[in-house]
Nucleic acid binder design. Structure first.
Length: 215
DNA sequence: TAGGCCATCTGGTCCT
DNA sequence: AGGACCAGATGGCCTA
């Protein structure tokens, strides 16, 4: 299922651009525009502020407060905490965006069907895991046949899978790494069974592929 | 309406 | 001290 097929964007924009929805604590956490910057709660892009008043203000503040580690008032401590929290929130948001970007990149190299909704995070990870396993098995089989090993391909049951299932073995027809840019996942998956040679074990020609085979 | 998925916030912990 | 990482909480959106 796709919770946000056309709704909210996958990557929520941050405070520096726009927010998708306000929160109760946003008056403290979001853009500095919502509240006048206090001397101890300087916006991160303060240096670019028109007139460059921020640095001057900070210097003035240091001068006025005697530089370092002076006992701070409760108000100043509170502002400092909020400032740190805001910065931590920004970093955390950015970190999660990076994580989501990596997941999107992973989705991009995984075969999917056109009518399939976007994979969820957990589906993407499981799919990738099983897909890599299938590719590994294919390479193993290719080695066996290339170097004339007498041993026939192991029965499907012996192939095993990381999850105990047997998702099949037809991933070696293309490499998600080497063809990442030109990969046509949808077509590839549907053509895979037919592209496998007639000598392929039955378990490697699973017929119509179900996406769930990889999950 | 319940449940799934997601983004975000938050506080804690560890590391530099 | 500050950043990275993590897990829990919260609330919004969507689908069955």
């Amino acid at each position: 299922m796709a919770p946000h097929p056309s709704g909210a964007p996958a990557n929520q924009v941050t405070c520096h651009t726009e927010r998708s929805f306000p929160r109760a604590s946003d008056d403290e956490v979001t853009c500095a525009a919502s509240a006048p910057p206090s001397p101890t709660h300087l916006p991160p892009d303060c240096a670019e502020a028109p007139g460059g008043g921020c640095r001057g203000a900070a210097r003035k503040l240091r001068t006025r407060h005697g530089g370092r580690s002076r006992p701070k008032s409760e108000l100043a401590l509170s502002r400092q905490r909020r400032s740190r929290r805001k910065k931590a929130n920004d970093r955390e948001r950015n970190r999660m965006h990076n994580l989501n970007s990596a997941l999107d990149a992973l989705r991009g190299v995984l075969p999917t069907f056109p009518d399939d909704a976007k994979l969820t995070k957990i589906e993407t990870l499981r799919f990738a895991h099983n897909y890599i396993w299938a590719l590994t098995q294919t390479l193993r089989l290719a080695d066996h046949s290339l170097y004339g090993l007498e041993q026939p391909a192991p029965p499907c049951a012996e192939l095993g899978s990381p999850d105990g299932g047997s998702p099949g073995d037809w991933g070696s027809l293309y490499s998600p790494v080497s063809h990442a840019g030109s990969l046509s996942p949808a077509a590839s998956l549907e053509e895979l069974p037919g592209l496998l040679g007639p000598g392929s074990p039955a378990c490697l020609r699973p017929g119509p592929l179900a996406f769930s085979d990889f999950l």
